[in-house]
Design a protein around this nucleic acid. Structure first.
Lengths: 341, 341
DNA sequence: TCATAAATTTTACGCGCGTAAAATTTAGAT
DNA sequence: ATCTAAATTTTACGCGCGTAAAATTTATGA
């Protein structure tokens, strides 16, 4: 009943009859103390409501339980979703994830790495900005902190890369489009933020060649992460000038596709694969909102579970001391057939 | 040249010729030391690359420089955007923001408050889940930590509430729809996650009465934060049964509107305000993707800047000791006229 | 009952920095 | 040159916990 708040482990030791070092051991690994001792501690914990001071803990621990999760652009639902999954896996494994978004800004990305450095995290899951990243800063960071890169690869930094197989994604969709209609043109940003874009273009070219079709790549201007707007403006221009050789358009990513579809709407061009439609539009990424575009967007979805599981498993085993050579894992995607193509 | 890393403030003191307490003072407020001293410190800092241990700092400081930002659902671009703005303002003010998302889960929200408690933050910006929140947990939390609630209000907890004027939002849109076409029906979730929904319905009812029209509220079933899907399914049902008395539909929020528009598309119902369209759809929130729906969504946009500025200013002055009575601030929204209504 | 290993307690030290009070130096003005 | 207030240094203590080593207790089996 003495609801006097416990201030520190010392006080908890006196009221619980357990020594402070044993309490310390308990908080770091409840199973490392005898069952009877654990019972006593947990009983005391219910009466007294005490929680260790994380700053004192982290100051003295060799390694904190913190894990940093960094994504390039959190307002993109794709990253929001992958971040959510990663976060949950870290919590389940007993770590404390902290989420950061670079908001598309290279300086901010570097600042975040700086902040992370001072947090002395056990590990970091980093999706770099890509082209705009300060690669030297990332390299230096990876030397100090166990880091798994995901989504987009930058050299062979960190302990591993985990992402999606962009070649398989694009080939899958190119294949589908060729089988069900005209071979597609490819719609992309000329200077994409994300290096995956180059793999996607190349994979499109490879697939078209393999199928014996003539490829066409439409590269539109635009910088930054406002992909929808870039797609819309570029789409207007391409449609006006009759640039598309095909009535099937494969977009480098879903957000670009959403923008292109808006341009089509604004130009009165019917999108879809049914009668009366004059253009098919497909994307890549499995964007959560793709289901609700009009028409719903045909796309290739990332395997969020596989990517996040591989990324966290790799990081956790590295934290536990497993030293394996640098490795790249790329998950396959699933075709999501909807009405846009 | 002696690139030997500085381990702590003590070592920096010896190499810089400045005493440790003065260095401590510098790191807490660079302007609090003499200009000449600051020069010396900053010169040393460039040669030796040292950064204070945040855990040791936070352990001893009366108050940390941490600020928690909690949103109910980060995959919603509205919250991603407001979180981004808040984050930036905290950084600019010299604080260290940490971002959390409840992911729509009440237990997670409580866990986050627990985590925050152990971080001893200087303050917290909290957008609660709403109806599903553990109100007692929030109340207890607010007693211990200076907290500004935003987006959706829960009682009069914390030091203030900052949000949008949902009455003004809804009235503005209702007014617009009445002036430009048939008075709207109102489309909402029967059991909304967010309490703002009730204000919006009430405001719709008030406005309709004021304009002398008969209101109609369509409440659709569905739980959780998958608003688009709820809107789509509810939309299908309403369209099939001919439930709508009006050809103008005001949706309680943009995501619901996006779902309804998808339902319209799937039913072959033309949305828009031009010739040949049979239904107008409007939303509320200024959702970033509303510009790219087909047709683009007419909506009322939050004043992100005003909300985030008021929220952070309120919190910062509270942290600085200003004790003012609980206050609620609600910013007005701007009508964004597009093609859907 | 006794031996043995495991768990726990005791004891002691250190982590890196905040902070307070007193002693000293410095800057700016007289 | 002298004075005064501000800045700085010195000195000293504490924060809450990790961790190591030695001493002690406990559990388990023979």
């Amino acid at each position: 009943m003495s609801e006097s708040k416990i201030r520190n482990m010392e006080e908890l030791a006196s009221v619980s009859g357990i020594s402070r070092p044993t309490l310390s051991k308990y908080f770091n690994a409840p199973d490392s103390v005898r069952a009877s001792t654990r019972k006593k501690i947990e009983a005391a914990l219910e009466t007294y409501d005490y929680r260790p001071n994380i700053y004192a803990m982290n100051q003295n621990r060799r390694l904190t339980k913190n894990i940093g999760i960094v994504v390039p652009f959190l307002a993109d639902p794709f990253f929001a979703e992958i971040a959510r999954t990663l976060e949950q896996r870290c919590i389940d494994a007993g770590f404390r994830p902290t989420l950061f978004s670079s908001h598309g800004l290279p300086e901010l990305e570097t600042d975040i790495l700086d902040t992370l450095l001072s947090m002395r995290p056990a590990g970091v899951l980093l999706a770099p900005l890509g082209r705009a990243s300060d690669k030297e800063a990332i390299e230096r960071f990876c030397e100090d902190v166990p880091t798994v890169l995901f989504d987009s690869n930058v050299e062979q930094f960190g302990i591993a890369f985990v992402g999606s197989d962009n070649f398989q994604f694009t080939k899958l969709m190119t294949d589908y489009l060729c089988r069900t209609g005209e071979p597609p043109s490819f719609f992309e940003m000329r200077t994409p933020a994300n290096p995956n874009a180059h793999r996607r273009r190349q994979s499109y070219l490879d697939a078209m060649q393999k199928f014996g079709h003539t490829p066409q790549v439409i590269s539109v201007e635009g910088e930054g992460w406002q992909f929808e707007e870039i797609g819309r403006l570029g789409g207007h221009e391409a449609l006006s000038s009759g640039a598309f050789n095909s009535n099937s358009i494969l977009c480098s990513n879903d957000r670009l596709a959403i923008g292109l579809m808006t341009a089509c709407y604004e130009k009165g061009v019917q999108v879809g694969r049914t009668e009366g439609c004059s253009i098919r539009v497909a994307g890549i990424d499995g964007h959560p909102f793709g289901r609700y575009t009009c028409p719903p967007l045909t796309t290739v979805s990332h395997d969020y579970d596989a990517v996040s599981k591989t990324a966290t498993d790799t990081l956790f085993s590295a934290i536990n001391g497993d030293v394996s050579p640098w490795k790249s894992t790329r998950s396959e995607g699933k075709l999501i057939m909807r009405d846009s193509a």
